[in-house]
Design a protein around this nucleic acid. Sequence first.
DNA 1: AATAGCTCCAACCGCACGTCC
DNA 2: CGGACGTGCGGTTGGAGCTAT
Length: 265
Amino acid sequence: MGRAPCCDRATVKRGPWSPDEDEALRGYIQKNGTGGNWITLPHKAGLNRCGKSCRLRWLNYLRPDIKHGGFTEDDDTTIISLYHQIGSKWSVIASKMPGRTDNDIKNYWNTKLKKKYMTQQLSNITASHPTQMVAPQLPPAFFAGMNPEELVNTADFALYQEEQIATKYMISATETVDNLTGSVSDEASSAASSSVTVENYNCMNWSRSGDWQSDEFFLLSDHQLEFDAAYGDNYLLNLTNMADYWVNFEVVKAEGFFNSLAPLL
DNA sequence: AATAGCTCCAACCGCACGTCC
DNA sequence: CGGACGTGCGGTTGGAGCTAT
């Protein structure tokens, strides 16, 4: 059984806030503060709203000294740097940027900065990833030689799972980078201009032949970079080596390998 | 001018965590 | 100790406005 909702959705107002509601909330909080209880606040303020909705409206919009939009190049650099270090910890990132809300930064990231960041990272990858791939020494993986079943229920298993998934995508990403005949920036800007939503990246057939589409390119790059952000450059390097190996020598075996892992993933 | 596609962002949702009783 | 409750967070959605065809 799920947890009971914090308020009755059938009776409280939802959706966009009216100017009157904004004024009622602003006026009440400026006069009385939040009282440390958002659940009872809407009733006291004469608002037919959920407490969570009031809190969100105050923190993200009505609170004094909030900056909306107008992100500068310096802001971009700060956000990208922090994202690279800590990932999508929007509240932490917002805490480093006075006047900015986590929601604002998150939206800005998802609509603008993400593409900029990915383009930067892809440029780095292609610059450090020559077309002539080099077979790495074996074993290339962190967990090579270990029995996956032994990792089940251990703290490492989640990382192991992610490594397998990441490896799968690194293979595709490596192929993608190598298959690009035009410049990366051209491909990236082309992809960025078309908003592509792929609902389930697992549906991708990683071993299929044919030309790569821009959405696939970005999809793969996205995951590649997420893992990079999560585990750092060394992790990316290892995965790149793994991908090189599979792509160069073991494509067929790799497919079987991943199929055998499927029950564990 | 119509409309289909895209971008942007306010707001919602559900989960995790901390606190209180 | 554990259940109830409030809060904070990241992910996601819906729709208004904009742009391209």
